[in-house]
């Protein structure tokens, strides 16, 4: 997925300060001064909350309980800015303006290279970058194994950005949140980011957690990320989930052990046939 999203100045201003706000949203200790016209158009939950003649509409205040404040922050920032972090390296200049300390607490120790070449980019669309305001972060860069040796690739600078350790879990979580709060365009974006981050991040604990999460956070009928996960099993581990009846129903219990077994099995399978 490659595309730059620039925030219109008026939306940026509306997000930055609480002027003209007619709706207060709180989550944990976070307080947002927001605008009904924007959030109600984006989310059917907020539309219902503002329409229903209960406490919320009486007080123009929606208090969100039982939700990770960091994820709520990402969701609300998406409503205003059309993107959330982590995102691609291309989005860093725009997202860095909106960086604050609430959204992000965990960085990766290593950093896979972001390569470009003259016409087209190999993995610069990986949505694992977050604007970093902390100069002390050190990440060791490495060349991803999947890049063929004979390819001459131009490394790209990752100035102003750091890689997060668990982009897949964040995107999977975002996907569920978008479903819960009725924001279809955010569902699409989270699904896209999840897919774009798979190539450099599938071989990790992040993937294990994300799979288990995906299979417990949305209704069974929601095939969005489920299909993406099954395709990833096939592509990266050579494992066809559909070949083993009943296994998909157990994916909410997916763990590291299962992951390692599958990975090895796939390797041997490939050697035998290859």
């Amino acid at each position: 997925m490659f595309g730059l999203t620039r925030t219109p100045p008026s939306m940026q201003k509306a997000w930055d300060n609480g002027e003209y706000s007619d709706l207060k949203v709180t989550c944990g200790s976070d307080v947002y001064d927001l605008h009904k016209v924007i959030v109600c158009h984006a989310s059917s939950f907020f539309k219902g909350a503002c329409r229903f003649p209960g406490k919320e509409s009486q007080n123009s205040h929606v208090d969100i309980l039982d939700e990770d404040p960091c994820m709520v922050h990402r969701m609300l920032s998406y409503i205003y800015l059309s993107d959330y972090e982590p995102s691609t390296i291309w989005q860093m200049p725009y997202l860095s303006q909106n960086l604050d300390s609430r959204g992000l607490k965990s960085y990766s120790t290593t950093m896979h290279c972001l390569y470009g070449r003259e016409f087209g980019f190999i993995n610069s669309g990986c949505a694992c970058m977050t604007p970093s305001s902390d100069p002390s972060i050190e990440q060791t860069t490495f060349r991803p194994k999947w890049v063929p040796r004979n390819k001459e690739l131009v490394p790209m600078s990752s100035d102003g950005g750091a890689q997060v350790a668990n982009p897949l879990l964040i995107h999977a979580s975002m996907y569920a949140l978008a479903d819960r709060y009725g924001i279809p365009t955010l569902s699409e974006m989270a699904k896209g980011k999840f897919f774009d981050s798979l190539r450099d991040h599938w071989d990790s604990e992040d993937f294990v957690e994300a799979v288990a999460y995906i299979y417990s956070s949305t209704p069974d009928s929601d095939r969005g990320l489920r299909d993406t996960v099954i395709a990833a099993f096939k592509q990266y581990m050579g494992f066809n989930v559909e070949d083993v009846p009943g296994i998909e129903d157990k994916l909410h219990q997916f763990d590291t052990l299962t992951f390692m077994v599958l990975k090895e099995w796939g390797k041997r399978d490939r050697q035998r046939t290859g």
Partner: peptide, 18 residues
């Protein structure tokens, strides 16, 4: 690969789920 330099890991909520 998982934990980072004493920093808090990012974790989405898992409440109310399976």
């Amino acid at each position: 690969m998982i934990a980072g330099r004493g920093r808090q890991r990012i974790r989405p909520p898992r409440r109310g789920l399976h």
